[in-house]
Simulated scan of single mutants.
Amino acid sequence: MTPRRARAAALFVSALLALTGCGTTVTTGSGGPGPSGSPSASPSVDYAALAREAAVRHDRDHPEIAARCAGRATALPPAPGATTGTDPEANKYAENNAFKRELPDTPMEECKGAAHAERIRAALTGAGKTVPHTEAQLRTALEGLGYTVGPGAIVADAATPDSGRLWFQLRVHEGGPCVGGQLHDPVRIETHGSYMEGGCWQPKGGH
């Protein structure tokens, strides 16, 4: 199993635990309880195979980025610790805000994410380009570059939606790096790891 898929599996398990902790009953498997009354087991998922398939699709769709990042390490660096030292208050703060921490990316993921951020920046804000000022314009531009723009990927200024104050976050293929930022001044488009509780947007609150 690749490091990112292993993390995806861990996040999935964490999500199940979070749901059960919130009073939600989660039943796995498609069938009902077996003869002993226990839920039937769900089929296993080959995360390593899914990761390989996603990598193949990425490299097929973006051969120039695949070539640029070829040979980069795929080993995952250690995740940031939950505490900051011996100060109890600092440790408590770090624990309470753990949901805001980003999962580390491998050097390969960092390289691909940075290359995609650079590609998007050049396409949207380069010389002779008209920076998108509406959600529809930004969605069209990103999809024209071959990215999947799912629900909630783009946020516009609710007060003045035509002001050009746009933010976006998207994931490059399944399990790939997060790329996002803002298109209003100062323009910022960068790559980063997904958050501890999943997703590319920083969560507003922990469980």
Rank of each mutant, 00 (worst) to 15 (best):
A158C: 08
A114T: 14
P104D: 04
A141M: 09
R101F: 05
V149G: 00
A153F: 00
K112M: 05
G176A: 05
R139S: 13
A114R: 15
P186K: 12
T106V: 09
A117T: 01
S194Q: 09
G180S: 01
P104G: 04
T130G: 05
R121A: 14
G152K: 05
K100T: 12
T134K: 03
G113C: 11
L142Y: 12
V187F: 06
R119S: 07
S194W: 01
V179Y: 02
Q137F: 08
R101V: 04
L183N: 01
L103R: 10
H173T: 12
H116C: 09
L166D: 00
M108K: 10
G128A: 07
C178V: 11
T160S: 11
L142M: 13
A153L: 01
D185Q: 14
A158E: 15
Q137M: 13
T134G: 03
G150N: 10
G175Q: 08
P177W: 02
H173Y: 14
Y147S: 08
T130L: 13
A127N: 03
M196G: 01
L124H: 00
Y195E: 00
Y195L: 05
T134S: 13
H116K: 14
S194E: 10
A115Y: 08
G176F: 03
T125F: 01
H184Y: 15
I154F: 02
E190W: 05
G164Q: 06
Y147M: 10
L145M: 15
L138T: 08
H184F: 15
P161E: 11
G113V: 02
R101M: 06
P177R: 07
L142D: 07
E102F: 10
T106S: 15
E190M: 10
A122Y: 06
E102P: 04
L138A: 08
V179T: 00
W167H: 12
L183M: 04
P107I: 12
M108N: 06
Y147I: 07
K100P: 03
Q137L: 11
T134Q: 02
G175Y: 07
H173W: 07
P186Y: 11
K129N: 11
A122P: 01
T160E: 10
G128Y: 09
A123M: 10
A136D: 13
R171K: 09
Q182S: 06
V187K: 08
A156V: 11
G181R: 10
G164N: 02
F168L: 09
T140N: 14
I154M: 05
Q182F: 05
R139Y: 08
A153T: 03
L142V: 14
S194L: 01
G113D: 05
P151G: 10
V149I: 15
T130Q: 14
A141W: 04
E135V: 06
E190D: 12
H184L: 13
R139V: 11
L170Y: 14
A114N: 15
E109A: 15
L183R: 00
K112L: 01
D162M: 07
A127E: 09
L145R: 12
R139P: 07
C178Q: 02
K100G: 03
K129L: 10
S194Y: 01
T134F: 04
G176M: 01
A114Y: 03
M108W: 09
R119C: 01
C111Q: 11
T130F: 04
L166A: 00
A159M: 06
G128N: 09
A136P: 09
R119H: 13
H184R: 14
P151Y: 11
W167R: 12
E135N: 03
E143H: 14
R171I: 07
L170C: 14
T160Q: 11
